[in-house]
Design a protein around this nucleic acid. Structure first.
Length: 220
DNA sequence: GCTCTGTAAAGAATTTCGGA
DNA sequence: TCCGAAATTCTTTACAGAGC
């Protein structure tokens, strides 16, 4: 049963990727509530939609965020990974607001991260804030697509450990800019799908616990 | 040994300051 | 008031340390 469940999850993940690809390459077109197709997407440069925020106005009392590829931006306390932190450097940390995007030192591998938290992070990261009205979830998914990561890598030369993607570089990359309604529509579709996967993962965890319990009973 | 995050230090840019 | 130098702030990069 656990194996079957694993397969279901894998299958859903593949579907999720396929869905993202289709949506962002505009192979499926969404329709609005009246059944009309949305207008063609516009494309804007990253610099037109986001600006580079460097806000250091904090009293070192905000939680320190770790920028991970797996979970995006999360508080350092909630992951099992201790990093050497020097107290003095915390003073120069940048403030991250809820809904900001963060270009990490590894963005050429895992895309651009989205923050659900308010906190501070190392100044080596670039904080992006939206200039005009956007559906953040839409871009959250877009920044994680394989296509976009490929775009990020396209112009990068000599990729090596710790290579930084500068804001200037980001701002030159075109981003899709469908109208707001469509952005929300797409974001909600993807979000629903993601939730579905999470539910399946929870079921899997339930199975695993059951198995452990049963095994324990057998040997008692 | 490899991958991953984050620091420290070097380098670049911007602002401040003083003298003419 | 303008120019150049010094100081400060911001950006970039090499590499350290944690965990597998």
């Amino acid at each position: 049963r656990i194996q079957t469940q694993n397969k279901i999850i894998e299958g859903l993940k593949v579907q999720m990727l396929g869905l993202q690809e289709k949506i962002f390459r505009r192979k499926i077109k969404m329709k609005d509530e009246y059944g009309n197709e949305f207008p063609e997407w516009e494309f804007k440069n990253g610099g037109d939609l986001f600006y580079n925020a460097t806000n250091k106005n904090h009293n070192s009392d905000l939680p320190i965020l770790a920028i991970t590829q797996d979970h995006g931006a999360i508080p350092r306390d909630s992951i099992d990974y201790q990093i050497s932190v020097t107290d003095k450097s915390v003073e120069s940390y940048k403030v991250v607001e809820i809904g900001d995007f963060i270009i990490s030192l590894r963005s050429f591998q895992g895309g651009i991260e989205y923050s659900n938290y308010r906190g501070i992070c190392s100044p080596a990261y670039i904080i992006l804030k939206n200039k005009c009205e956007i559906e953040k979830l839409f871009y959250k998914y877009y920044f994680k697509t394989v296509d976009y990561i490929k775009l990020l890598n396209k112009k990068l030369e000599g990729i090596r450990d710790g290579k930084m993607i500068s804001y200037a570089y980001f701002s030159e990359i075109p981003l899709p800019y469908p109208n707001l309604k469509q952005q929300i529509e797409i974001a909600s579709v993807l979000h629903t799908f993601e939730e579905k996967i999470e539910i399946e993962i929870r079921i899997l965890k339930g199975y695993s616990r059951q198995k452990q319990y049963l095994l324990q009973q057998m040997f008692v």
